[in-house]
Design a protein around this nucleic acid. Structure first.
Lengths: 249, 249
DNA sequence: TAGTGGTCTAGACCACGCC
DNA sequence: GCGTGGTCTAGACCACTAG
C-alpha cells in the first residue's frame, strides 16, 4: 500500500479501543464540524478517502454507511456522497411528527413570531452549560397547519452560540436551515418528551381554543453535529385534526 | 464452491430484482415464520448458512446485520445469532416509551384485567381484514407504574388469530410473550398515534383522576413477522409523573 | 465513456464465550 | 482450544449519473 497522507489515532491499544471504521467516521465528522465539508458538499470518493486516511475502501464504506444511517450524509449511486442539508424534506421527515388523519404531512407556516434576549435562568444555564451572566434568546412562534393555527412554540437558544440572531429578522420558517447556514450548527438528533396538559389563557388566545382544552405538550432537546445541546423547544399543540406519529421499530 | 443445497429465486432478472442479501434475509424470515427457528433459537453460523443457501459468508452477514437492526435477531460475539424473544427487556426498550422525570423505565404492573369476545365492528373488520361474521377479543387492563395506576389499555385482537385466548387466564403482564409462545405471532414493529384528550367518567374512575383531566391517548397498531396487523391497542395515560419519550434520529 | 456507489466474494486476523 | 461473530482488506462486477 502507498503511504497514507494522514494517520488515525490508536490503531489497537487495548483500553479505549475503537474500531477503525468508527475512527474514520469520527474523523469525517470532525472535518465537517471544522467546515472543511459544509452541508451540501460532495465528499471525496470512497477510494480517495481510503487513500487519504490510509485505510481500505471497505472501511471507509462502513464509516459512510454509518453516517448515512444517522442522516448525516446522503449517498447517491453514480453521483457521490453529500453532506446532508436541512432542506424542507429533511426537516419534515426527520423532525416533524404531526400528521393529519390521512397520515399526510404538511410543513407548518409561521403566523406570528416574537424574539427577545433575556438573562438565562438556572435551568437554562445548566442545560446549555452556560456561565453566570449568560443570556439566551427566546423565540415565540404560532404555527398553522392547513391554514389553521395549531401549535405554539417557545424556542430557547444560547446567545453565545447564536450571536446577533435579531439581525436575521424576520426569521425563516425553517430555523434549522438558519442555524446551519448562518451559524454552522447542524441539528442531527433530537429527543422529545410528550405530555398531555390543559390549555391556559395564553394557549387559548393563541390557538383559538377554550381554556382547559386538551393540549399535547412536546419538549424537544435538539443536538448538533458536535453532540452538544443546541436548541430547547416547547410546543403546545392541538390534536383535534392532527396527531403525533411515533414509529417503534 | 460446492453445490448449494438450496437456491434463491431470481438471480438477476431485471424487473422485480432485489439484492441477494435481501433475498437471504427474506428466506430467513420465512423460515422463522414457518417455525423452523422459533424465538430464542440459535441460528446456524454465517458459514453454514452461506453453504446451505449457496451464497458467501459476507452476504449472509449483511442479511443478518439487517435483521439485527430490526431487532428480529440478536447477535453475540463468540456465541452466535439468536432469534429475538419478547423478554421483559425487549418489551421495555422497544415498545414501552413511558419514562419518569429521571428518564428511568419501569415495567408496568397489570392491576385489573377483563377479557371479552364480541362481534367485530366494521372498523375492526377493515383493520384486520376479517370476514362478515368475525369476532374479536377485547382486553381491558389497568396498569400501574411505581405502585400507582397510571394507564388504562384496550387491546383488540382477531379471534381467528388468537383462538381460545380465555384459556390462558389470567393473562400475563407481558402479552407479547403470550402471543409469541402460544400463537406463534411475534410482534416486530408498531406505530403509535398520540393525542391529548380529556378524561371521561371511566378514565377518572380507573385512574383516580378528575373528569376533564388531561390524558395522553396512544393508539398503537402492532405488526407481526409476516407484516400483518396483529394487535390494536388504545392506551389512556396520565402524564403527571411520567412522559412519553420519542427519539428523532 | 469515465467515475461513483451498490453488491458480492474470498480470505485474514481479532475478541469473546464456552468447554 | 475451538467456534462464533467483529473487523479489515482486496478485488471483481453491476447500476446509475453525468458529460
Amino acid at each position: 500500500m502507498s503511504p497514507p497522507t494522514s494517520t488515525l489515532p490508536q490503531s489497537a491499544a487495548r483500553p479505549g479501543y475503537s474500531p477503525l471504521y468508527l475512527q474514520v467516521k469520527q474523523t469525517l465528522v470532525e472535518k465537517m464540524i471544522a467546515g472543511e465539508w459544509p452541508p451540501g458538499a460532495l465528499l471525496p470518493s470512497e477510494q480517495q478517502l481510503g487513500l487519504r486516511l490510509g485505510v481500505s475502501q471497505g472501511t471507509v464504506r462502513k464509516a459512510l454507511d454509518a453516517l448515512a444511517s444517522e442522516n448525516i450524509v446522503v449517498r447517491h449511486q453514480g453521483r457521490g456522497t453529500f453532506v446532508s442539508e436541512h432542506d424542507q424534506q429533511r426537516t419534515l421527515f426527520q423532525f416533524f411528527k404531526l400528521v393529519d388523519e390521512q397520515g399526510e404531512k404538511r410543513f407548518p407556516e409561521t403566523v406570528d413570531s416574537r424574539l427577545s434576549l433575556v438573562a438565562a435562568n438556572a435551568a437554562e444555564r445548566a442545560a446549555f452549560g452556560l456561565g453566570a451572566n449568560a443570556r439566551v434568546w427566546h423565540l415565540f412562534r404560532n404555527r398553522a397547519l392547513k391554514g389553521k393555527i395549531t401549535l405554539t412554540e417557545k424556542i430557547t437558544l444560547a446567545a453565545e452560540r447564536f450571536p446577533r440572531l435579531d439581525a436575521h429578522k424576520p426569521l425563516p420558517n425553517n430555523v434549522y436551515q438558519l442555524y446551519e447556514r448562518q451559524y454552522g450548527t447542524t441539528i442531527t438528533r433530537a429527543v422529545e418528551k410528550l405530555r398531555a396538559v390543559l390549555a391556559d389563557d395564553r394557549d387559548a388566545e393563541a390557538l383559538g381554543c377554550s381554556v382547559g382544552a386538551p393540549i399535547l405538550q412536546i419538549d424537544r432537546n435538539a443536538y448538533g453535529l458536535d453532540g452538544a445541546l443546541a436548541e430547547v423547544r416547547r410546543s403546545h399543540c392541538m390534536t383535534e385534526d392532527f396527531h403525533y406519529l411515533s414509529d417503534l421499530h
